[in-house]
């Protein structure tokens, strides 16, 4: 799967600042609103928090994949953010999360939504790729690592 088709340079951020789980999610949604990818901030936020309430999307080795489904978006919206300081995200292994992959998809529309998450996760599951992402200094560098450009 080609990540370039879904990720755009303006939805990849190297400098997330929030230091709580709720804060990171809100910051990423706000940045998506600012980038013009999302209109209904509240609906998107609610859908992601609803999913988090079922089970935290904090995985292992500092990776979290907050995502939600809402009809306030027409097609898959994806973003990747990095917070080098690390945020407590109730992750599986208890370690703070540094890499955040967010997707918002329409409730009924078909398309490779979870597959996108899975593909990014597969890339990040390699320690070398994670190290590269955490060493990146600019948004563009992160984008390049993810899309192989």
């Amino acid at each position: 799967m080609n990540l370039k088709k879904t990720l755009t340079p303006d939805t990849v951020w190297v400098d997330l600042r929030a230091d709580t789980k709720q804060g990171v999610i809100e910051e990423m949604v706000d940045r998506l609103v600012a980038a013009g990818k999302v209109r209904d901030r509240e609906a998107v936020l609610a859908s992601i928090l609803e999913r988090e309430a079922k089970m935290s999307t904090g995985m292992q080795n500092g990776v979290a994949i907050p995502h939600g489904k809402t009809d306030s978006v027409r097609s898959l919206v994806a973003a990747v953010g990095i917070n080098k300081a690390g945020v407590n995200f109730d992750s599986l292994d208890g370690s703070p999360c540094t890499i955040f992959i967010m997707t918002i998809s329409p409730t009924q529309r078909t398309g490779p939504h979870i597959q996108f998450l899975a593909e990014v996760s597969r890339l990040i599951s390699q320690p070398a790729e994670r190290d590269k992402l955490l060493a990146a200094r600019t948004h563009a560098e992160v984008y390049e690592i993810l899309t192989g450009k």
Binding site: R51, K54, M55, I114, Q115, L117, A118, E119, S121, R122, S125
Partner: peptide, 19 residues
């Protein structure tokens, strides 16, 4: 092994939808 992410994640979402 290389494709287990996608299978596990889609199944996880369906499992959670049972709630």
């Amino acid at each position: 092994k290389a494709n287990q992410h996608v299978a596990r994640m889609i199944l996880l979402e369906e499992l959670l939808s049972l709630t």
